[in-house]
């Protein structure tokens, strides 16, 4: 449809939104980048702490043991540094949630009450992530936690402990917990994707004698490729931005063993009160995210 009216009348639809976005989103983003180079972006108050203009903060962050801990990496012990923790997070969380999401979505499509189970799994997406973090800590608790209950049932009582309070297990517990929370996302998106696959292609394969595994990998997965790209992009973004869960359960501890980028930024801001350094961590976080966002944006704008 060719809408009539002047450019001005058309832009009047956009102006209110863009005023808010420019002031409270775009300008702050630009200002954060500027601040990371020690240039004061906010009038009326100097928050650079008088550091010289330059890229020095970036060296400082990149060389910081909070960012990458060489000792931890060499000895394979925690903490290994925030960026490494984020990478570990992606390396474990991404494949686990994708495989679980795909399998469960397919399964739930064909069992009795599948949609009810699906809504159970989705609960992790509904609740505040801060509660999600507390629930993770709760479930890994030595006495109260359901994880240790299963260890006891299966005769592994000796292994029972409060998993989130030990450096070597804190991060892994949180990652497992985040699988529990985020699988609701992958199951839901894959279910929507499955619903858009013609069910006759699956039935044709059933008549031809294909079993579940063959149908899943030869018929379903190839047809879900665009959905999978979306799921991968959104999951990586979520993994990189992870904050609430860690804040609620371990605060990045013990001793930085579960520190992640978003929390490191908060650490510089609130505890150290070094705003340019906080801005630098935020900018690095954004740069790390950027390639994934570009892929996601391409995916969305393509085929319009």
């Amino acid at each position: 449809m060719k809408a009539r009216g002047s450019i001005l009348s058309k832009f009047s639809f956009l102006i209110p939104s863009f005023i808010l976005i420019i002031i409270f989103v775009i300008y702050p983003i630009v200002a954060t980048i500027i601040l990371s180079f020690n240039i004061n972006p906010v009038p009326g108050i100097d928050i650079t702490k008088g550091k010289p203009i330059g890229a020095e903060n970036y060296y400082e962050v990149l060389l910081s043991f909070k960012f990458i801990n060489r000792h931890g990496l060499e000895t394979l012990s925690f903490p290994m540094g925030a960026i490494i923790h984020n990478i570990i997070w992606i390396a474990l969380h991404l494949p686990l949630t994708i495989i679980l999401g795909l399998l469960l979505a397919t399964l739930f499509q064909h069992v009795k009450g599948g949609s009810i189970i699906r809504s159970f799994i989705f609960l992790g997406m509904v609740i505040p992530m801060i509660v999600g973090g507390l629930l993770i800590q709760f479930s890994f608790d030595k006495d109260l936690g359901v994880v240790n209950l299963f260890l006891k049932i299966t005769g592994l009582e000796w292994a029972a402990r409060s998993w989130t309070i030990y450096p070597n297990t804190a991060l892994f517990s949180l990652i497992l917990g985040s699988v529990w929370l985020w699988t609701g996302f992958t199951v839901t998106i894959y279910s929507a994707g499955l619903a858009s696959i013609p069910k006759e292609t699956i039935e044709a394969a059933v008549v031809d004698g294909a079993d579940f595994k063959t149908i899943l990998f030869k018929i379903i997965v190839p047809q879900l490729k665009p959905v999978t790209i979306t799921v991968i992009a959104m999951t990586i973004l979520w993994d990189l931005k992870i904050f609430d869960i860690v804040y609620a359960s371990t605060l990045g501890g013990p001793g930085g063993a579960s520190m992640v980028l978003a929390l490191l930024m908060y650490d510089y801001f609130a505890r150290v009160q070094n705003y340019p350094m906080a801005a630098t961590v935020a900018t690095i976080l954004t740069i790390v995210i950027l390639p994934v966002v570009v892929i996601w944006v391409r995916m969305i704008t393509r085929g319009k």
Binding site: I7, I26, P41, V297
Partner: peptide, 29 residues
Amino acid sequence: RFSFPIKNYLFVTMLFLMAAPQQMTIIPI
């Protein structure tokens, strides 16, 4: 529904903002 100059740029900007981390805005805010 409308067509106007720089529409696609503005829309892509929106998409990028959707994915931005909150940490990236909070200090100036």
